[in-house]
Structures are given as structure tokens and as C-alpha cells.
Design a protein around this nucleic acid. Structure first.
Lengths: 276, 276
DNA sequence: GAGTGGTCTAGACCACTAT
DNA sequence: TAGTGGTCTAGACCACTCC
């Protein structure tokens, strides 16, 4: 049922020129509050007036104020808490104090990569890591997608781990990861310890197989209902979704994972060398 | 004015248990429409019923339907076009057919990196690249942030380029980039040609300076008004914001750029090697 | 002229918390 | 009890396009 496949092209997307004014009222409020934040009139940690007060101040309905505030939430300038109010998060940065993703150093840098250990990384940052298994780890039949990424037939079982990682008790990311069962099946008996040691070092020691290559495909979108619940994200706040494929030196795929992380809280840092 | 710095922690953020029901009505609609999409009842390219029809179908006000549809827009499952309606974008993937970011291969892979040329990369993908300068390139006094990232004093001028890149006429990303003027000042006279050749190869040939290292810090957030206009993004759709620092072999910073790209359209791929 | 999405209004009730 | 954010309603007008 293709309906000529619409594109963003020529739809003059100026949805803010209706109702006579030059800008929508909500957009005007976004601009004004945004300016107050960047000028320092509203500072980090400050509480904003209530929605009802702002509605009165801007001579506008409460829904219009809410729309403006939702925009500012999505831009990461505000956080909201039921009953308590809206709070200024940061003038420009300040969110970026957590490094959300492992820093992958490349050979030329002389640094060491962290071997895939969330715990080691978080401790190094001085944060308290925690991990919750949302499902018990299990051997499952892979669905089509998983089988394809792991380069397995649909009949071979895989080890599935589905967990939520936290740092300082703040939900950090959801990880749904799959591993070939012939390599990692025995980890089933060690679930309590998983994560306390670098997984790929364990693989190297027990199977002589060295993880060498990582590919990450990264997209951003809004969280769905389930993710919002697990990550405790405000509606309208985006998440970063990463599909990660880890290969061994033999080019065998040894892990495929889907990672979902709250985007407003964290920065993902990638380092790499240029080959001209 | 710190107000004890609120956190996401214990606020049981279940904003969907109000009004008696178990789920909010809007969330129920998201779930139902999402299921119809993933089950194939609504297929890629299909047009959804109008907001008013959906409101009647779900026995709900139009604003509630709109809220549900905004969520689906943000998840990337729908696109909306004024006057025309809402259209199904993809069951699960399909957006990912464009590779949005350059693929940085690492030394061990034996592949070649692309030297910083947007044009070469897009042509290789069979897409028609285009570039629009939103400001004419100019030598400007750096603000504090730029001076710091480029490791310059605020008195030294920098070359600023501010441009919008398009692929197949679709806005692709905004790039605000800064370069030390002693290295790139002469490019001012070549603006028409900039981008048609790999910038870092040009640097190597004219100054004997080789770009070696890239660091990217990546966050996702909702677009602000200006970005929405330039990138022609639906409200509620996220963008990926990248801060890129490029250094030469001498550790001198030769470029600092802030990149803003529509997130729903593109996937960012990163490849790198593991050093255990 | 009918229908679309985008915007806005002026109310309402809920669950929750601080006083 | 008063005030908060979260949710929802039942209308309204606009600019625009398709017929």
C-alpha cells in the first residue's frame, strides 16, 4: 500500500506560523525560558515556577506551558519530578560529567581497553555499579534476528542475558545480550559472578579465544513505554539504542547485544585513529 | 540555589497509573497501534486513520490521540505530514538503510578511512551530496568554548564554517566547525571548493601536518526550534549531537566541530579494535 | 467545501507530598 | 489542606491540500 512514500522535502515545515503570530506561543516560552537558563538568571538546580504560575505569567493555558516544558525536558535543560516541580539541569553542560560509555582507546594511544567490564569501568569513575537480571540467564532458541547476527542456525541454542545496569542506584542502561552456547553456556552456573570480571578475559582464559573487534550501530529515539519504566525516564526524553557485535580474531561473532541507555544522562565517547 | 539536587531514584515514576486505569489511555493507544505495526496489519508506507477518526475509534479526545501519535513519532515508527496524515515508517528497521556517519575503520582492519570527505562518502553510497553554507566562512574571534577546545587564546582568530549537508536533497546534518586560522585561513578563498576534497589530505599536502586522532562525544536530545527548522524534523523527534575534536600527530587540535544530525533517519556506525 | 495536522483554551480529576 | 506534576476532555481556529 505505498502511498507515494512521503518525504520531508518540500513540506515547509513551519508549524509555528499559525494563529496569526510569528512563533507559536509554546515556542516563545521555550525561547524565553531557554534564554533565562543560558543567561544564568535560572541556574543549575533552581526550581522553576509551577506550571500554573507560568501559565499566568505568559497569559497562556496550562497545556501550552506544558508543551514548552516538555520541549525543554527533551533538550535536556530541565528535569521534572512529580509533586516537586521542574528543575534546571544545566546551562550548557554538566550532564556530561558522567561518561556513559566505555572509552575505547585504540592501539596507537597506548592506553588499555577495559575488556568489557562494566563494573571495572564504573569503579574507576568512582561510582557504585550494580546489575539486576530482569530475566534469569538462560539457554534459548534464537529468533531470526539473533541467529543471523550470531551467524548461527535457528536450531542452535544461545545464552541470553537480559539485565539492567545501574550506577550509584541510577538506572543506566538495559542490555539484552546473546552468546553462542558452546562458548558461554557454562556461565549459566556462574550468574552471580558474571559482570564482576571482564567477560572477554574469561573467554580468553577458558577457550583461548580473543575478542578483537567491536562494531556498534547507534541510533537515538524516544523511549517506549517499557524502557521508560525500566530506565525511569521522563516521557519525551530520548534514549540511545546501540546494537553491538563483538567478534573474535577468527571473525567468529561471540556476542550480539542490544543496549538501550538514557540519553539525557550520558555522553558516549568514541576515540579512534585516522588512516589517511 | 541547590534544592538538594533531585535524582531519578526513588520517585516511583509510574505516571501511567492515574485515573483509575492500569495504563494511561494514550499509552494504551501507543501499545495497540504499535502492535498493529509490528504484526504487519499496518505496513510500511500505510497511512493511518486521521486523528479525529482514531479519537472516535478509541473513545478518547483528540489530544489524547495526538499524545499517543507523538510518542510513535518519537520512536521512529511513524512520520507525519501536515494535511496528508500519519504514515508508517518501518516495522522494525528500514530506517537504517542510510549509513549516517562515516565508517571509521581502524588500522588493524586494513581498510582506509575516508579522510574527512563527506562528498566522497556519500557518492560511494550512491547518494547525491550537497552542502549549504548557512553563514559565509569567516575568521572570527573564538568564544570561550571554542578557544578552549582548540587550545588557543581568545585573541587568536579562528576559521569558522557553518553549513548544512544534504544527501539526496534531504537535510542530513548541521556542522559548526572551527579551525586554527594559521592552518586553514587560506581556505577562505576556496570556499566553493571546500568539501569537494578531503580536508585533511589538503592539510597534509599544504602544511605537512597529518590528522591522526579523532574524539567524538555523542549525546541525544530533542531538537531545538532552530534545528527543527533547518533539519526539517518533526517535533518530538530526537537529534544526535556530536562534539568532534580532531588532532594531528603533534597532538595539536586542528578541528573542533559541533555536529547535529537527525536521529530518526540515520544510524551511526563505529568500528574499533579491542585491546585486552 | 471537506478534511488534514498543528496549535491553543479552560476547565477537570488523580496521586502524591510537604506543611 | 494546599499545591504539584500527570493525564484527559471537548471544544476551537488556523493554513493548507485535494477534490
Amino acid at each position: 500500500m505505498y502511498d507515494d512514500q512521503p518525504e520531508n522535502r518540500e513540506v515547509d515545515n513551519n508549524q509555528f506560523e499559525s494563529s496569526g503570530g510569528e512563533l507559536g506561543k509554546a515556542e516563545g516560552i521555550v525561547k524565553e525560558l531557554g534564554a533565562e537558563i543560558s543567561k544564568g538568571k535560572l541556574r543549575e538546580g533552581d526550581r522553576l515556577p509551577s506550571e500554573r504560575d507560568l501559565a499566568e505569567r505568559f497569559n497562556v493555558s496550562r497545556m501550552t506551558v506544558r508543551k514548552a516544558l516538555q520541549t525543554l525536558l527533551g533538550e535536556g535543560l530541565l528535569n521534572s519530578y512529580p509533586v516537586r516541580g521542574y528543575f534546571v539541569v544545566s546551562p550548557l553542560q554538566g550532564l556530561k560529567e558522567h561518561q556513559g560509555e566505555m572509552i575505547y582507546s585504540v592501539p596507537g594511544m597506548g592506553e588499555l581497553r577495559l575488556g568489557g567490564s562494566f563494573n571495572e569501568y564504573m569503579k574507576r569513575l568512582g561510582r557504585k555499579p550494580a546489575e539486576v537480571f530482569l530475566d534469569p540467564p538462560a539457554l534459548v532458541a534464537p529468533n531470526e534476528e539473533v541467529a543471523e547476527h550470531l551467524q548461527l542456525s535457528a536450531k542452535e541454542l544461545v545464552l541470553k542475558r537480559y539485565r539492567l545496569q545501574l550506577a550509584d542506584n541510577i538506572p543506566y542502561r538495559l542490555i539484552e545480550s546473546y552468546y553462542p552456547s558452546d562458548l558461554f553456556g557454562e556461565l549459566l552456573t556462574l550468574t552471580a559472578d558474571i559482570g564482576t570480571q571482564p567477560l572477554f578475559k574469561w573467554l580468553q582464559e577458558h577457550h583461548g579465544l580473543t575478542a578483537t573487534h567491536v562494531r556498534e550501530d547507534l541510533t537515538a529515539r524516544l523511549a517506549n513505554t517499557y524502557e521508560r519504566g525500566q530506565l525511569r525516564i521522563s516521557p519525551g526524553a530520548p534514549v540511545v539504542a546501540i546494537e553491538r557485535t563483538v567478534s573474535a580474531e577468527t571473525d567468529r561473532v561471540i556476542e550480539w547485544a542490544r543496549i538501550t541507555a538514557s540519553a539525557t544522562l550520558y555522553t558516549f565517547r568514541y576515540d579512534y585513529e585516522i588512516q589517511l
